[in-house]
Amino acid sequence: MNAILHAQQLTKHYPGSIALDHVDFTANAGESIAIIGPSGSGKTTLLHCLAGILRPDAGSITLNTPSAPLRLDTLADAALSRLRREEFGFVFQQGMLLPELTAVENVALALMLNGTDRATSESRAAEWLAALGLAGMEQRRLGELSGGQVQRVAIARAQVTGARVVFADEPTGALDSATSTEVLDVLLHSVAANGRTLLVVTHDPQVAARCQRVVELRDGRIVADSAGGVHVPAAPPAQTAAPIHNAADNAAAGNNFKGAFNV
């Protein structure tokens, strides 16, 4: 497997706590990875460092792009911002969509920010919404959509630009369990169908169970990695939260998504 995102000795301190403690981590292209761990263990901090949102105090982060490897930890703010909108996609629990825009405009905005013209952006956005089960709801404002539908809009927004890595932080945290499952299906299938890499922070064992790989954090260190080969420091023995499906499951389930996306 080829590494797409590679972090070495990542360290991040906050006054009075250490959020990341010399973390080594590699994400391979096309993998879906769940990041689990107790509250305050550094999951969000790790995700934000890998995504170029937070700057680590020490350590390096390398993104392998088709042209040349990029060092995120040394990139200037403006370049990082650009990298985030061009190379990455994000699904947060809430807040990344604008309530005054319609569903289709919210998704199209991601493309427009990258310089795509409005007509093309909106038609591609509409294709994505339709593929994620929101056909006919393009012109609705966020307030007129259910929580699960809003998250589908966010999932469409995260991928419409052709992002190679999708970062999700508790994407189903605000949803009931039935809706969570649906949204999760949509996320996993659409990401897999397009060959993207997914990093999802979650508390939900059900979510972790459906990712190809599970990484567990505790006190700012990786204490378990289902991919194996990870140097677990002197910590309690690694115990993955749940069985890990293999890639074929998700890919098969995601087949119906493939045709729709030609990003």
Binding site: H48, A51, I53, A78, S81, R82, L83, R84, R85, E86, F88, F90, F92, Q94, G95, M96, L98, P99, A110, L113, R157
Partner: peptide
């Protein structure tokens, strides 16, 4: 504010 923070994280330029 929370939306602006989220938009900044997903790469919307501040100038915009």
């Amino acid at each position: 504010a929370s939306t602006l923070v989220a938009l900044d994280r997903v790469g919307m330029p501040r100038k915009l």
